[in-house]
Simulated assay, not measured.
Amino acid sequence: MIPSTTDNRLPRILVVDDMPDNLFLMNGLFEDRYEVVQANSGKEALQVVMSANPPDMVLLDIMMPDMDGYEVMRRIRQHAPTATIPIIFLTALASRKDERLGLDLGAIDYLTKPVDPEQVLKRVEAHVHATSRARCIEALSEKLARHLSPAAWQRLFEGADSRSIDFEQRQQTLLFAETAGHGVLDDRERDALAAEVEWLATRHGGRVDRFHDGAGVAFFDDPAACVRMAMELQRTASDLRLRIGVHTGICDIGTFRSDYESRCTLIGHETRLAAKVAATAAIGSIAVSPETYALVKDEIHTDANGCLVMEEFHDSDLAQVSLTPAPAPSSGAMSTFAGLGRN
């Protein structure tokens, strides 16, 4: 599945037409799939496009009284921040000359009225899909440029390995672990943290994002498994003086092959949110976001042996609960939730 946008919201589609009936038809066609914004003139369309919240795509009529669609498109293309917004002409002008002019101006498609709703929906969905993938490719390319060799990056984005790139969007719970110095690690500490995160993530059923500087990042389908790993990591890597954040959200996951190995990484803003949650944690503790706490609070309060639970973030939108593992006893059963100890 291709994510809708890299910031995990519905694509925002602007429909521009001076006929109320056409606006009503398009709104009914798209409202369950996209965020639909309407404009009944070229001037109003430009105000929406040039706003702080521009659309991800524009469906643009040509024949309008104040400013025709061709002029609207020229102005959008002349403004650098909006120049790459995909535009589809949706118009009663059906001649080859008009279509050629629209495409030459940079429209990605040209649809004529009267419209076939099913065909319009199919074409728009195809372009949304292609645009979303292109944005994800751009974000992945920018991230991996800092981590892959130039040759490996070129093979992945310009060579045969490009066919291996895929994206999916799903709810994940992220673990973000950083040192008290906010990512200042020597080589030994960095290798130790990476090895411990890799081992524990595999043991607890998660995946590791190896492409993040100065921190350990893992992500899980099961939020409780992520918290169990966080508790065990705090205990086993106590000499690194870690702050750990756990956060749940809808994540964009990129998978690809590089150097004959299948790899994955997170793109988008959820990793940054997990890092902000980690920054609220005390050294040796785990800060849990409200989103994650809502999913695991029953397990925490039912099976909290071996950890200190403090609801100390009542005034924060980032974190709600702090968990601190107690020293491991020399023997005896450990909490099945806290996971303090290797089985």
Rank of each mutant, 00 (worst) to 15 (best):
L10E: 11
A328V: 09
V36I: 07
D61Y: 09
D166P: 00
V58N: 02
T236N: 12
A275Q: 15
E178Q: 12
P55D: 02
L105R: 05
C251L: 00
C226Y: 03
E299C: 02
E189M: 00
H314N: 13
L323E: 01
R146W: 08
I300S: 10
D186W: 09
A134S: 13
I137A: 02
L140P: 12
A151Q: 13
P86G: 03
L90P: 00
L233Q: 05
E196T: 15
G306A: 04
L59W: 05
E142H: 09
F337M: 07
G42L: 06
E158V: 09
A287C: 06
G332W: 14
A92V: 08
P54M: 06
R190L: 15
H127N: 09
T265W: 09
L156W: 14
A282I: 06
L101K: 14
D222E: 13
I2H: 06
V58E: 04
H269A: 05
Q78L: 02
G245H: 02
H129E: 14
K122M: 13
E261S: 05
S258A: 15
A139S: 14
A279E: 11
V309I: 13
E189W: 11
H147C: 12
R235W: 12
W199F: 06
D259F: 08
A192I: 01
V120R: 05
A194M: 11
R342W: 08
D315F: 04
V277M: 03
P325L: 09
D239L: 12
E311S: 11
C136H: 05
E196Y: 07
A45G: 03
N305S: 14
A39Y: 14
S322R: 11
D161V: 09
S4P: 06
L29F: 01
I244K: 07
L103S: 02
D191S: 15
L23W: 03
T236A: 12
D104C: 07
D259S: 15
A278C: 03
D109Y: 11
